[in-house]
């Protein structure tokens, strides 16, 4: 049996310390240790994107990051982005366009979309389609998701001071 390692992570602005098994990936840690069940495990081999969270401000696959690797780092989840209001416009746009059905992929989709909005404000619809192609949604036809992201992208672009 390998020793549990003390791991301290700032999760959604709150510093938490736990002893974790090295094999525990970040999403299991968030879900099972912290009860942050908004991030989902759906493939656990890095393809579907349902586990997408932010580490030090950048999105990663939560299933391809060990909790111990996040020691000393800042992790943001859908719960954090919701509570801070950071993606309220994006959530509203998704809601208005019904850009989700079962909702299982949605937290990961929103995390990825927010990364796009932050890092590629000039993205075209094709670039949005491309950027989002690492997040599997099996319910929608993706169209409402792209529509929602595109609308927020334009709105944020217009809101930015010239």
């Amino acid at each position: 049996m390998n020793p549990m390692l003390e791991t301290t992570i700032t999760v959604n602005g709150t510093r938490v310390t736990r002893r974790v098994e090295p094999r525990t990936h970040l999403v299991d840690f968030l879900r099972e240790e912290l009860g942050l069940t908004g991030s989902h495990t759906a493939c656990e081999h890095g393809v579907c994107g349902a586990c997408t969270v932010r580490v030090d401000g950048e999105i990663v696959r939560g299933c391809l990051t060990l909790a111990v690797q996040a020691n000393g780092r800042a992790v943001d989840t859908i719960e954090g982005l919701s509570d801070s209001g950071e993606i309220r416009d994006l959530q509203a746009a998704f809601h208005e366009r019904n850009a989700l059905q079962c909702g299982f992929c949605t937290p990961g989709v929103l995390m990825t979309a927010q990364e796009l909005l932050r890092t590629r404000p000039a993205a075209t619809r094709d670039e949005i389609r491309d950027f989002m192609s690492g997040n599997l949604c099996r319910c929608t036809g993706y169209q409402s998701i792209l529509d929602a992201i595109e609308a927020v992208l334009i709105a944020r672009r217009q809101a930015r001071p010239a």
Binding site: T37, G38, S39, T77, I78, Q91, H95, L100, G103, P107
Partner: peptide
């Protein structure tokens, strides 16, 4: 669901 507050 949009806030990660679903319960699966």
């Amino acid at each position: 669901l949009l806030e990660g507050r679903g319960c699966y």
